[in-house]
């Protein structure tokens, strides 16, 4: 992990101003911000742990807890909300058997909500592993999950 983190820091330089970019790349690498990685960032960049912790907890895009392999995000912005986003969340919670913000026991899925992704015309929106799905109905949720599971199974078989 140390070498991976060092490489990421090398991309931007050890200036404090680059902290956000470094944290984003670490999150992209591990799907969350692992403690040892942050300790290493503090050491190499000379930024206090308090400062890193503040940044990591300030942005809801960062997670300090390990997240699942696949991340399902339901937009709960106003436009999506009035078009039934809460029902989508409920459906996800039912299918994945996990509360919003949580990760399934098998570490496959993390369910998150976000307050507006800026694509209100497409609401309600669901983002699965970075892919945007607009105009979703709760009946489509299980299809989304199945698709991911199927792709995984295929990958596993190959």
């Amino acid at each position: 992990m140390q070498r991976t983190v060092d490489k990421i820091i090398d991309r931007y330089g050890a200036e404090e101003a680059e902290l956000l970019a470094v944290l984003m790349d670490i999150q992209a690498e591990y799907n969350y911000l692992p403690r040892p990685a942050l300790e290493r960032v503090s050491e190499v960049m000379g930024v206090s742990r308090s400062r890193i912790n503040y940044m990591a907890t300030f942005f809801s895009a960062f997670s300090l807890e390990e997240r699942g392999k696949h991340i399902c995000t339901v937009c709960m912005g106003t436009a999506c909300h009035v078009r039934g986003a809460p029902m989508l969340v409920e459906e996800f919670e039912r299918i994945l058997e996990v509360k919003a913000g949580g990760t399934t026991e098998d570490m496959q899925f993390t369910l998150e909500t976000v307050n507006c992704v800026g694509a209100c015309a497409l609401g309600p929106l669901v983002i699965v592993d970075g892919e945007y799905h607009g105009n979703q109905k709760s009946a489509q949720v299980s299809r989304l999950v199945k698709k991911v599971r199927k792709a995984d199974a295929k990958e596993g078989a190959a």
């Binding site: 206090s48 742990r49 400062r51 503040y54 907890t57």
Partner: peptide, 24 residues
């Protein structure tokens, strides 16, 4: 620098990093 803000908005708090026994 043992202390810092944590989170934001209604969840904002002051504390030690990662909420554990402070090293600093």
């Amino acid at each position: 620098e043992a202390l810092g803000f944590i989170g934001r908005g209604d969840k904002k708090d002051v504390g030690t990093p990662f909420d554990d026994l402070s090293k600093e």
